[in-house]
Computed example of a mutant assay.
Amino acid sequence: MVALPRAVRTADAGTTVAGIGDWVDSAPLRDLVACFGGRWPTGDLGAVLAGLDEFSARHWDFRAGRERPDAREPDLDPVTAGRARAAAIALGMVRPLPPARPRYAHLVVLGGLAHACLRRVAYAADLLRRGLRVTGELAVLGSYRPLSDVERRTLAEAGVTGCDTEVDALDAAVRWTFDVAGPDAEDGLDAGHPHHSWSSRTYRISGRPPVRVLAAPSSEPERRRAHTADTQRFWAGHVDLAGGDQVLLVTAPIYVPFQHCDALRTLAVPHGCGVDTVGVDPTRPDVARLPEPTLTPGRYLQETRSAIRSMRTLHTALA
């Protein structure tokens, strides 16, 4: 499996840049570009990343600005589909890895589609039950993105009702997973528009770190909803994130490369903290009983593009 870039202090950013280069220049990604008839970009790392961004926009962008569930599925022949999955495995987007450390300052669950909200919170709870030590808080990060009808049905089938937004689903997942009735503290701002509004709900659970469910505003509210980097940056403003702190992020395996690099840019670079990112292990009992959509070759190609773009943005920030 190709290693992801490591978080290091900004003064030694060359190590992170080298990690970006190793991932981007890996044989699986080169093979994937060749599979779609592409020529490998020339020049320095910035030029290669720009070339791969442009290439992936032409060949692997099936969203075209839409939300992930609305992306079209490409019609790939069996050989190309197999190579797309093989590349995804090698690039760390399929098989989950356990946390690298037994102890972290903070455990952060990233939001997503409704089924992902349930699965990721359940996996975070599973990690805590199995002895992962967290000295700070369990943070569950999302936004006021409206849920689709399909997402509401998914939640209802799992026994979760009354959710209209992503942060509603995350909050319900916390109450459902940890068997708590309501938050012990609440804060927020209702700005009259979901792109400007934010909220924070904190749960105090015996024997567990404090659990904070946070909905972030968008950093570009006139253009879009809050995305992953917005939620990470907003959370960092709500905790005493110190240099040397180790943060563990939980997401789905397919999103590990791109969300890890987002976290390096939004957390590690400005705050000097360490970041590890893990995908949910679907074999864990509390996770296996929750719904999960089938991942397709098109989805893997789309998120390979997301990883390239995230690494390009990280490289720019470091340079």
Rank of each mutant, 00 (worst) to 15 (best):
G92A: 04
A57Q: 12
L138F: 03
C117D: 09
G136M: 09
R72W: 14
R68C: 01
P74C: 09
R85P: 04
A114M: 07
A105M: 02
P102T: 15
A81P: 00
F55D: 00
A122L: 10
L76P: 00
R101W: 15
Y123N: 03
G131K: 01
P102I: 03
A64W: 06
G51T: 10
Y123D: 02
I89E: 14
V109N: 07
P102S: 15
G51L: 08
D70E: 15
V94S: 04
R72S: 15
A87I: 03
S56G: 03
R119V: 14
V134E: 01
A122S: 12
D75P: 04
D75L: 12
P78V: 13
D70S: 12
P78I: 12
S143M: 04
R66Y: 06
R120P: 05
H115M: 12
L97F: 08
L76I: 08
A71V: 10
G136P: 04
P78Y: 00
A139Y: 09
R119Y: 09
A125P: 08
G112D: 08
R85A: 12
I89C: 11
A50Q: 08
L107D: 01
L141R: 08
W60F: 11
P98R: 03
R58G: 10
P102G: 13
L97V: 13
G136W: 12
R101L: 13
A84G: 06
A71S: 05
I89M: 10
A88E: 02
A139W: 04
L97W: 08
H106G: 05
L132V: 12
A87E: 02
T80G: 04
H115S: 15
A50I: 03
L107A: 09
A50E: 15
